Amino acid sequence: MGIQCVDDVLNKAFFRLGFYVGRHPGYFIIVPVLLTLFFITGYQQIHHNIDPEYLFSPVNGEGKLERKIAEDLFKVNYTSRFNVARITRAGRFGRVIVTSKDGNKNMLRKEVWKELRLLDDLIQNATVLYEDEYFTYQDICAKWNNECFKNDILNLDYIIDE
Results as ranks from 00 to 15, higher is better:
residue 36 T to W: 00
residue 7 D to R: 12
residue 136 T to A: 02
residue 80 S to I: 04
residue 130 Y to C: 07
residue 133 E to N: 10
residue 47 H to R: 04
residue 116 L to N: 01
residue 126 A to T: 13
residue 74 F to Q: 08
residue 67 R to Y: 03
residue 113 W to A: 11
residue 28 F to T: 05
residue 107 M to C: 01
residue 3 I to E: 12
residue 50 I to G: 10
residue 114 K to Q: 13
residue 2 G to S: 14
residue 12 K to G: 11
residue 106 N to D: 15
residue 123 I to N: 01
residue 144 W to E: 05
residue 87 I to P: 02
residue 108 L to R: 15
residue 92 R to A: 14
residue 7 D to G: 07
residue 155 N to Q: 01
residue 120 D to E: 12
residue 74 F to S: 03
residue 113 W to T: 04
residue 153 I to L: 14
residue 157 D to R: 07
residue 20 Y to P: 00
residue 60 N to Y: 13
residue 119 L to R: 10
residue 111 E to R: 14
residue 154 L to E: 03
residue 123 I to E: 01
residue 23 R to D: 02
residue 162 E to M: 12
residue 146 N to T: 09
residue 65 L to C: 04
residue 23 R to W: 03
residue 52 P to D: 02
residue 162 E to S: 11
residue 75 K to C: 07
residue 125 N to Q: 07
residue 162 E to D: 12
residue 53 E to I: 11
residue 155 N to H: 04
residue 8 D to K: 11
residue 45 Q to D: 10
residue 29 I to D: 04
residue 114 K to Y: 14
residue 127 T to F: 02
residue 47 H to N: 01
residue 78 Y to K: 14
residue 44 Q to G: 09
residue 57 S to F: 15
residue 35 L to H: 00
residue 94 G to Y: 09
residue 23 R to N: 05
residue 20 Y to A: 03
residue 97 I to D: 12
residue 95 R to G: 12
residue 46 I to P: 00
residue 141 C to F: 11
residue 37 L to P: 00
residue 136 T to Q: 03
residue 57 S to T: 15
residue 119 L to G: 13
residue 75 K to L: 12
residue 30 I to E: 12
residue 97 I to M: 12
residue 88 T to Y: 10
residue 28 F to M: 06
residue 161 D to V: 01
residue 16 R to W: 03
residue 162 E to I: 13
residue 107 M to H: 01
residue 29 I to R: 08
residue 82 F to M: 04
residue 101 K to M: 03
residue 70 A to S: 14
residue 105 K to P: 15
residue 138 Q to F: 02
residue 20 Y to S: 04
residue 97 I to L: 14
residue 93 F to Q: 05
residue 62 E to L: 15
residue 161 D to S: 13
residue 31 V to K: 14
residue 141 C to W: 06
residue 71 E to Q: 14
residue 70 A to L: 15
residue 113 W to Y: 15
residue 110 K to V: 04
residue 58 P to R: 06
residue 22 G to K: 05
residue 16 R to N: 03
residue 33 V to R: 08
residue 133 E to W: 08
residue 34 L to G: 05
residue 21 V to L: 03
residue 125 N to L: 00
residue 104 N to M: 03
